[in-house]
Design a binder for these strands. Sequence first.
DNA 1: CGATTATTTCGATAGCTGTCTATGTCTTCG
DNA 2: CGAAGACATAGACAGCTATCGAAATAATCG
Lengths: 119, 119
Amino acid sequence: MSKSLVVLSPAETAACCSPLSREPLSRARAEQVAPLLKALADPVRLRLMSLVASHAGGEACVCDLADAFDLSQPTISHHLKVLHESGLLDREKRGVWVYYRARTTALSSLAALIGDPVR
Amino acid sequence: MSKSLVVLSPAETAACCSPLSREPLSRARAEQVAPLLKALADPVRLRLMSLVASHAGGEACVCDLADAFDLSQPTISHHLKVLHESGLLDREKRGVWVYYRARTTALSSLAALIGDPVR
DNA sequence: CGATTATTTCGATAGCTGTCTATGTCTTCG
DNA sequence: CGAAGACATAGACAGCTATCGAAATAATCG
């Protein structure tokens, strides 16, 4: 694969800077951030993120996750792929199982962009 | 229209409670929150939100907004409608102009849900 | 009232997306 | 090696969505 040496996930590239309401978002930045939100903007993926993020040890394998849904395994796999490729989930294969781990920093900086924390 | 007396926008209904990583999101709540994120998960709408939220006086009329994009005016109107119907933008007509105002509380609680603020 | 201007609504279309079944890959176990 | 299990990929399909141009609505102005 012919990629640059420094590989940044979409989440890493998009996370930064001042919140939405401080100054107008540049077009470029909007196009970086939108895919992240799009990845999160699905009920199944939201729950997947939440399940992984709140799971013991900070990670969960697909087998832990699939049972929580009334969906086929490939569909879950698809959603996990979307979350992984957007940089919101890390993936690691250990033996037969694949473990996913939430990138909490990505979530935090997304949150920081959308709105200042409520006080 | 035959609606309940207490009318809550999607944003108001969805905004609440503990963040994603504290405990698994219920299916019902995921289905409330996802449409909000979906509304935000478009580069044009992200910029629209940002333009409105950061505009002088906290509000902006369509005429202020449309020029920032290389899109037809009906398209802008469509995106504003999506943001309005999801509860992220308030709308008020004054004379010939329609003014939009960001619901910062909706943004804040969305942010609070996605991730705890970075420290 | 008629013209003009700001904005929305309508109808159409191309492209994206969530889901499924079927199949492939990889690892472990006997 | 061969079978079984965990997960990913491929291909198909229905439903959604971003966009446009055309037309409707609504307010102002002469």
